[in-house]
Design a protein around this nucleic acid. Structure first.
Lengths: 137, 137, 137, 137
DNA sequence: GTGGTCTAGACCACC
DNA sequence: GTGGTCTAGACCACG
């Protein structure tokens, strides 16, 4: 599992890490029980402070995505969280609206945007083609 | 043009304003040449500091969405920015991937997510049904 | 003498007018005794408030470039001002430095920039080829 | 990197800061990757409000000259902006025309003005001899 | 420590 | 009235 981090990105580094891990879970590239790299390993790999990685893991654990077992390591949670549907749906609906607004400003149509989603579906399961880029404004 | 702002939202207030204005442009509710409320006026309406509105306007101007004329007011730009297509497409593709990842984590399918987009299309042109909510990570 | 004004320009409108008139004098297209358009005429031509034109004329008169004769009109001054050399030279030296800095940032060389000046020399006497554009930042 | 600011100058303080930094980049005294003083630090040095410095930095970032990294500092951009050549050339050509018009009004010749540029070239790489002066109209 | 945001209030220039 | 600038001080999030 290769992560990439961009310190100039508007999104905090620990959130970039969280996002990549949750996306990997969503895409099925990480499964319940899979072991994650330790803080130390990951922080060396990404050339960032170990505390930053720890914060990402802590938050992911609080959200129920991963479990830390002292002395053994960190693993993708056996029972992934079932998020409150009502709340989640509102958030997703808004995220969809934002995506579409961006697309319209760029001159794309609804159909174009749907195609983006279909491409995204392939990317998610294979891992991103293009590593990581700037958070859109 | 009715804006709504939520100070406890994770997204900064000036960004909430920016987003609502760009979405209004994307949805066709604001057109080139339309006059925006002055930053003082809007700040009273929203019960926030004038500088906060001004910051939103400044950034929108830097991005090319609006034009300000000293002593006269602020207007939707006559020539809306044509952003670099290549760069734009990458950003949109990533935004699509993030949306889909969120949706999958919530248990939705690709088809469900496409339906979200279709609903968003209606919202964009009419104005958002639900005012404003938290920025999802 | 055709003037052009851009309300979106950072430079105030009255200053845009002042600049174009002084440039015309510098280039020899306006000579001592030449008659300028009246406030009224010019404000109609440019579609701006008469007060704005008046302010430009007032300032030019205060600087000694033009003379207003009540009931007769406004004329290019018979004795154009001789500006304080010492002060003027410092200002020019700085203006030159700013021009060169801009040019360097754009990738031009000193020689390129000198060529710009030579072209400008021709433009000044003939009137600008390209009407008027944004004040550079 | 020593900056100097003049609050009574017609040019806003934040612009004076912007100009000095871009000129330092143009003259090669600041290079990609160099770290700038934090806006707090600089504001103490210059005895102005931190927000004023921040505004200068924000604008420079929007223009692509510098990058900020939360918690780490502000750096000269690794990829300095390559501005649209066509547009840039028009702006430079106008700036040259304005400089020359000023020079002519002061009684200088084309040759004199070219010499000003040559002097400016030396100043730019060494840092300005004369600190800062009034924006000429 | 860094940058990011927000406030309340001031003064100026322009139209 | 409009936008443009600046201040002094506050609180937060990040690394």
């Amino acid at each position: 599992m290769q992560l990439i981090v961009n310190p100039s990105d508007e999104l905090p580094i620990y959130r970039q890490i969280m996002r990549q891990i949750t996306e990997a879970i969503a895409g099925g590239r990480l499964k319940s029980g899979d072991r994650l790299a330790s803080h130390r390993e990951l922080s060396e790999q990404l050339v960032i402070a170990p505390l930053t990685v720890k914060k990402a893991y802590d938050e992911l654990e609080a959200l129920g995505y991963i479990d830390t077992q002292r002395g053994r390591g960190t693993f993708v949670s056996a029972h992934l969280p079932e998020i409150d549907r009502a709340d989640q749906t509102i958030q997703l609906q808004e995220a969809a609206r934002r995506l579409l607004a961006q697309a319209y400003l760029a001159g794309l149509s609804l159909a174009d945007t749907i195609n983006l989603l279909k491409t995204a579906d392939r990317e998610l399961t294979d891992g991103p083609a293009v590593p990581q880029a700037k958070e859109s404004a």
